[in-house]
């Protein structure tokens, strides 16, 4: 946990990831009248993953706005609202549906400030339930965060814990620029300590979750938990893995990763998005270009999603993205010089 020491101590409860986001939304809505929620079925239904829950009862339909199934229009309305004084939080029901709204996100939200020479800003927050593992198959299971990470003007985060999910959301709501929050669906029910009230987790700062000297494992979202579980097993074998949760993929926390790799001399990047041209490519290239290059003592390893859409069959679905045993085996090979 990266709990800031300076904050006034508040009660820390065990909340699920979904509850933590809801808590963050409520804190923001109480603090700032301008914060509104938009999305499909986020009102009485409570959101497809029960993130908004009872917020419509607490804040009313004017601030928890059920949109028609119109992702492009809905996203664009959120952009326009952000441009003119509101602080909308737009929920995509599944991150896959953002493909319908790419125009507004990529051409408008990301670029308006730049195109208008700095005369405007777009303080927009978008939430994307993402990732596989729920049996929802190819159109409801993708991890598209790297697409957005490729767009200057956007900031892209992936919280792995309830604490970070709330802290990054609140940081996003204070950010003057559009922030895309990717939430892995398997994490929604995971629990963790979450302080009451307001706190933020800085955007652009990775979290060093576990120290170790033998290999650096850079992971995102659900892969952080798989990497940590693998690291515990590796420790029993005498291999100490250092695990870094990137938390933000744009802008990347170069310093934390470079320092770690300079120490461990070995790098492995674990992420759920399709392996090719993804987060792993960026982190690897960043290391190859950095002062840590001279410390590399083995090839860099990327564990990413398969070169296939996410399949329905549960065994195939598991096989399509890195699992704990994959991380374990790759780390062993890497550290024991078999790669």
């Amino acid at each position: 946990m990266s709990m800031p020491l300076r904050e006034t101590p508040t009660e820390v409860r065990e909340l699920s990831y979904a509850e933590a986001i809801r808590d963050g939304l409520a804190v923001a809505m109480e603090r700032d009248e301008r914060v509104i929620l938009m999305g499909e079925d986020i009102g009485v239904y409570g959101g497809a993953f029960q993130v908004s829950g009872d917020l419509v009862q607490r804040f009313g339909e004017d601030r928890v706005v059920d949109t028609p199934i119109s992702e492009l229009g809905g996203a664009g309305i959120a952009v326009g609202a952000a441009l003119t004084g509101l602080r909308p939080v737009y929920e995509f029901q599944f991150s896959d549906f953002a493909t319908l709204a790419m125009e507004q996100i990529v051409n408008q939200a990301a670029k308006l400030r730049f195109m208008l020479g700095g005369a405007v800003s777009v303080p927009l927050v978008m939430r994307f339930p993402a990732g596989s593992g729920t049996g929802a198959a190819a159109q409801h299971s993708q991890s598209l965060e790297a697409w957005f990470g490729h767009v200057p003007g956007l900031k892209v985060c992936q919280a792995a814990t309830p604490y970070d999910a709330k802290g990054l959301l609140l940081a996003a709501l204070e950010d003057p620029d559009p922030v895309m929050l990717f939430e892995h669906k398997l994490l929604y029910k995971t629990k963790g300590p979450v302080p009451e009230g307001h706190y933020t987790v800085p955007i652009g700062q990775a979290h060093l979750c576990r120290r170790g000297g033998d290999v650096t494992i850079v992971a995102t979202a659900v892969m952080v938990h798989r990497a940590l579980a693998a690291a515990d097993k590796l420790a029993e074998e005498g291999i100490e893995a250092e695990v870094i949760d990137l938390r933000t993929i744009r802008p990347l926390d170069r310093k934390t990763v470079v320092e770690s790799v300079a120490k461990t001399s070995r790098l492995m990047v674990v992420y759920e998005g399709v392996k090719t041209l993804g987060i792993g490519a960026e982190v690897s290239a960043m290391i190859a270009e950095s002062e840590a290059f001279d410390y590399l003592d083995a090839p860099i390893v990327r564990l990413g999603g398969a070169e296939a859409p996410i399949p329905y069959n549960p065994d195939l679905e598991k096989a399509a993205v890195p699992q704990e045993p994959d991380i374990l085996e790759a780390a062993r090979s890497l550290v024991r010089g078999r790669l």
């Binding site: 001399s265 001279d294 003592d297």
Partner: peptide, 13 residues
């Protein structure tokens, strides 16, 4: 084709 020792950056350093 390349008559060069095969070595990691760390070893070279």
């Amino acid at each position: 084709s390349v008559e060069k020792a095969r070595a990691t950056p760390q070893a070279r350093r």
